[in-house]
Simulated scan of single mutants.
Amino acid sequence: MPPMNRRRFLLTAPLLLAAVAGCAEAAPQALTVYKTPYCGCCKGWITHMTRAGFKTDVREVEDLNPIRSQHGVPFELSSCHTALIGGYVVEGHVPPADVVRLLKEKPKAIGLTVPGMPIGSPGMESPKGTTEPYATLLLLDARGRTRVFARHG
Rank of each mutant, 00 (worst) to 15 (best):
L77Y: 04
G111C: 06
K43G: 14
T47K: 15
E132L: 08
F9H: 04
M124D: 01
N5T: 13
Q70Y: 04
P133V: 09
C39R: 10
V99D: 05
L11S: 06
S121R: 06
S79V: 07
C39Y: 10
R8K: 00
T130H: 08
M124N: 06
L102R: 11
Q70V: 11
L77T: 09
A21Y: 07
I110Y: 04
L138S: 12
R8V: 08
H81G: 06
V73C: 01
V61G: 07
D141G: 01
G116A: 06
C42F: 06
L11Q: 00
P95C: 05
M117V: 03
K128S: 08
C41P: 06
V61W: 02
G40R: 02
D98M: 07
T36A: 03
E132C: 03
G72W: 02
S126W: 02
L17M: 02
S69E: 12
K35G: 04
A109K: 00
H93G: 13
L138P: 03
H48I: 14
L11F: 03
D141A: 00
I85P: 14
F149N: 07
L10E: 05
T82M: 02
P28V: 13
G22Q: 10
T36M: 04
R143Y: 04
L17G: 05
A83N: 11
H152Y: 07
Y38K: 12
C80V: 04
I85T: 15
A18F: 03
I67Q: 01
C42D: 10
D63R: 06
L64N: 02
Q29H: 15
F54H: 12
R143P: 08
R68V: 09
Q70I: 11
H71Q: 04
P118L: 05
G87M: 01
F9Y: 01
T136A: 03
R145S: 11
M49Y: 13
G111H: 00
E125Q: 10
Y134R: 10
G116N: 11
R51T: 10
G40E: 03
